[in-house]
């Protein structure tokens, strides 16, 4: 089908509009982070990188980043493992309560996170657990591991069961089949699930707000700084966080290519 010139122009305008709508806020935050002024104003009159130096030198900031990182890394690793086996149960094997399991496992994704956070806080209190960043890990997992399961399950559905059967037929035990066939073939989806898990945990605010107790994650700290005692550190740390996420996504996009290169060498 041939697209008319008018339609092409309209599509182009639409595309640019969407991208602008998505990225303009980030641009303004970036400008705010390099502004010399003490208060957020636009347009920026004088530029400076001082706040970046301060952010990188600040002990508070590095503590906060470290807490967020701890939470996100643990959530990522656990989500990948839980999601992998969960997805096999979800998509590959027939068992008695599979249908029910498929529905129940996805339900937490649709809970409002504030309600989920509050519910978890109340539960922690009632069993006598003092909330710290460790409880936040649990809270994040309740919401994120179903997402990871779903991502891996999509690929597990398209997995040809005959591949596992063939491996077994040629003498591979259950464990060897898992290691040599199932895991490598589901690996791309496990990696994307891990990526999602990390980014969702890294940026999560509502669950962390209720469940970190005295500890503080990056989004919480940014919010606290915004509402009481704004400093240009807020946009600066925000931008740094975005850059870090961007690097991670780039790495993930390149991952299949890196894997292929590695396989060629083997």
């Amino acid at each position: 089908m041939k697209t008319s010139r008018l339609l092409r122009a309209a599509l182009m305008a639409y595309g640019i509009g969407i991208i602008a709508w998505l990225y303009l806020p980030l641009v303004s935050v970036t400008f705010a982070s390099i502004s010399k002024a003490r208060y957020l104003s636009f347009p920026v009159k004088r530029y400076s990188m001082t706040w970046y130096t301060r952010a990188l030198e600040s002990d508070t900031v590095s503590d906060i980043v470290f807490t967020s990182l701890k939470v996100a890394v643990i959530v990522t690793v656990v989500s990948m493992v839980v999601g992998f086996f969960g997805a096999l149960a979800f998509a590959r094997y027939n068992w008695r309560f599979r249908k029910l399991y498929q529905k129940l496992i996805l339900l937490p994704i649709f809970f409002p996170q504030t309600v989920l956070g509050l519910a978890l806080l109340m539960w922690f209190n009632s069993v006598g657990i003092i909330p710290t960043w460790k409880t936040a890990v649990i809270a994040h997992l309740v919401w994120i591991s179903p997402i990871a399961t779903l991502i891996i399950a999509i690929r597990a559905y398209s997995f040809d069961a005959a591949l596992e059967e063939a491996a077994r037929d040629m003498g591979a035990s259950t464990w060897v089949t898992l290691r040599e066939i199932t895991l490598p073939l589901l690996m791309p989806s496990v990696i994307s699930a891990g990526l999602f898990a990390f980014l969702l945990s890294w940026g999560n605010f509502p669950l962390s707000l209720f469940t970190t107790g005295a500890d503080s994650t990056l989004p919480e700290w940014l919010y606290a700084k915004m509402v009481s005692g704004y400093s240009p550190l807020v946009p600066t740390v925000g931008v740094l966080s975005i850059i870090a996420s961007f690097c991670l996504v780039t790495l993930a996009v390149l991952f299949p290519w890196i894997m292929r290169a590695a396989r060629k060498d083997r």
Binding site: D160, A162, L163, A166, A167, R168, D169, M170, A172, S173
Partner: peptide, 30 residues
């Protein structure tokens, strides 16, 4: 006796070649 302990082997309808392996790795698998 489970499939992996039987000295028999089957060529599948879908062939079940392992897509993440080279031709050589496939043949060498057993």
């Amino acid at each position: 006796t489970p499939a992996n302990e039987r000295p028999t082997c089957m060529v599948f309808q879908s062939l079940a070649l392992f897509p993440h392996m080279t031709v050589g790795q496939n043949i060498e698998f057993p």
